[in-house]
């Protein structure tokens, strides 16, 4: 039991140190709590915990606590954050493109203009695959198939209205078909969709590259294209753009602070995050998790969210999930 006693003692020491310390103004004195608006094990949860790990190990924050507030594509966590974190210098929220979509489809009470974007962190490519037994060898073959029979081109991917669904609509549109006609079968996640792909029940599938990497490398699935704007080292499949299809869709994640944040506090958080993402520890972690660096500072991120919201809304409208 000494293991626990020492951990407990360490926790006491941290707590005692915290009460003695002056209010947090310096980055390395930050005591943060990060809300992951999803349950344990999901993408936002792992992003929040990754940030926790690196911010503490690089000394950019004294303590970081991750709180899970799951629900409705992150909109439950967002609403709680908007109400509870106003002008707070030590609370942050993780979010991403799925949240942008969920805000629109769920008609959520708050959108991302209610919070203060601090930085865009990661952006992962989506991959379009077909089963190894599929007659489609290239992206052009798949586009041809969609063009000739949009109904029987069955897609598998994550839940309705998510990034996977959006990409299937964009591809269908690029093939000259009505995106409202896309036959998209939603599964609870990349896993179940994977089983449908391997069982040959669907024509094509979409998921985060990392999730299906094993099957792509073993040859059970054939990757036709990725949705990233540029080629990525270590991924054989080429971007849609490089294959003459003008589509890009990145599954980005970013970090936000509460509404009405004082300029000095905002600067402190921006600095802490900027130093964290430039650290070798962060780069190592990205490589280990198979995440791609997609860092953008606050101003650029704010503008990006505005344009991304517009784009997501128009895609969802074309599918019939928003008006």
């Amino acid at each position: 039991m000494t293991f626990f006693r020492s951990r407990l003692a360490a926790a006491w020491l941290v707590a005692a140190g915290a009460t003695l310390a002056a209010p947090a103004t310096m980055a390395q004195d930050l005591e943060l709590s990060i809300i992951a608006p999803a349950g344990a094990g999901g993408g936002w949860d792992s992003a929040a915990r990754a940030l926790q790990e690196v911010m503490m190990s690089t000394g950019n924050a004294r303590s970081v606590q991750v709180i899970n507030v799951p629900g409705a594509g992150g909109t439950v966590g967002l609403a709680q954050f908007v109400q509870g974190a106003a002008s707070s210098p030590n609370q942050m929220l993780v979010g991403g493109i799925t949240m942008v979509g969920a805000i629109i489809t769920n008609k959520a009470p708050y959108d991302l203009t209610a919070v203060t974007p601090i930085a865009r962190l990661t952006g992962d490519p989506l991959v379009i695959v077909v089963p190894a037994s599929s007659p489609y060898q290239t992206m052009a073959d798949l586009m041809e198939g969609i063009k000739s029979d949009v109904e029987r081109t069955i897609w598998a991917g994550g839940s309705a209205g998510g990034a996977d669904h959006m990409l299937s609509a964009l591809v269908t549109q690029a093939a000259g078909q009505d995106p409202a006609k896309v036959n998209y079968v939603a599964y609870s996640g990349g896993g179940e969709a994977l089983a449908a792909m391997l069982g040959g029940q669907v024509t094509a599938g979409i998921s985060g590259y990392g999730e299906w990497q094993g099957q792509i490398e073993s040859g059970d699935l054939r990757a036709l294209a990725i949705s990233y704007p540029e080629p990525i080292e270590g991924i054989e499949a080429q971007p849609l753009k490089a294959q003459g299809i003008d589509i890009e869709l990145v599954n980005w994640r970013g970090i936000f602070a509460g509404p009405d944040l004082a300029e000095a506090d905002k600067a402190a958080l921006e600095q802490a995050i900027a130093q964290t993402v430039q650290s070798p520890e962060w780069k190592e972690l990205l490589a280990a998790r198979g995440w791609s660096d997609y860092y953008a500072p606050s101003d650029e991120f704010t503008a990006f969210i505005a344009s991304e919201s517009e784009r997501v809304k128009s895609i969802l409208t074309s599918i019939g999930l928003a008006e």
Binding site: T75, V76, A160, V185, A186
Partner: peptide
């Protein structure tokens, strides 16, 4: 909650905690 296949909400009565 939200129907996984279509994104349609069923019987949530506007309570966000019921959406899942």
């Amino acid at each position: 909650g939200i129907d996984q296949l279509t994104g349609q909400t069923r019987l949530a009565f506007g309570v966000p905690n019921l959406l899942d």
